[in-house]
Simulated scan of single mutants.
Amino acid sequence: MNSKSAKPALPPHTAEENIAYTRQMLAELRTVANNEGADMLRYFIEMAYVEAGDILAGIRPLSIRGQGDPAIAMPLKPAGKVKF
């Protein structure tokens, strides 16, 4: 007999549900930071809140991994001689 009780498996959450939950928590944290006068903290939380909203609206991708930075791929040319 197994001494551990079987726990029911939690239903899988979608990324959209997780981001929506995160956004809701960020809204609450933003209020706390605002009430405490923590302006910089409130600003960063607000930026994360906006980012989560953009992801939910489809404006931004969930992740930027694999997209690369186009500026990094630009070849640099040597400056050569500078004429004054």
Rank of each mutant, 00 (worst) to 15 (best):
I45A: 02
A38T: 05
G68S: 09
S5D: 13
A6V: 10
P11Q: 04
H13E: 09
F84W: 15
T31V: 07
V82I: 06
A15M: 10
I64G: 01
M47Q: 15
Y49E: 15
M40T: 02
N34L: 10
N18D: 11
I64F: 09
A6Q: 08
S63R: 08
K81G: 00
T14H: 00
I19R: 07
R23P: 01
K77E: 14
V82W: 05
E46W: 04
A57M: 01
N18E: 13
Y49P: 03
L56E: 11
Y49K: 12
I72K: 14
Y49A: 14
A48S: 11
L56M: 14
A33Q: 00
L62H: 04
A27S: 12
L56T: 09
V32S: 10
P75W: 05
R30T: 03
Q24E: 09
P8D: 12
R23G: 07
A20Y: 06
Y21P: 00
A52G: 08
V32L: 11
P75K: 03
L26H: 03
A79P: 04
I55W: 09
L56Q: 12
T31Q: 08
Q67T: 09
M47H: 10
A15K: 03
M25Q: 13
K81V: 14
E28I: 04
P8W: 03
S63D: 06
Y43F: 07
T22K: 08
I72F: 12
L26N: 04
D69F: 01
I55Q: 13
T14K: 05
M25I: 13
L10S: 15
E17M: 10
A20D: 13
Q24W: 03
T31W: 00
A15Y: 06
G37V: 01
P70K: 01
P75L: 05
N34A: 09
A33S: 08
I72T: 14
A71N: 14
F44W: 02
N35L: 05
A48W: 03
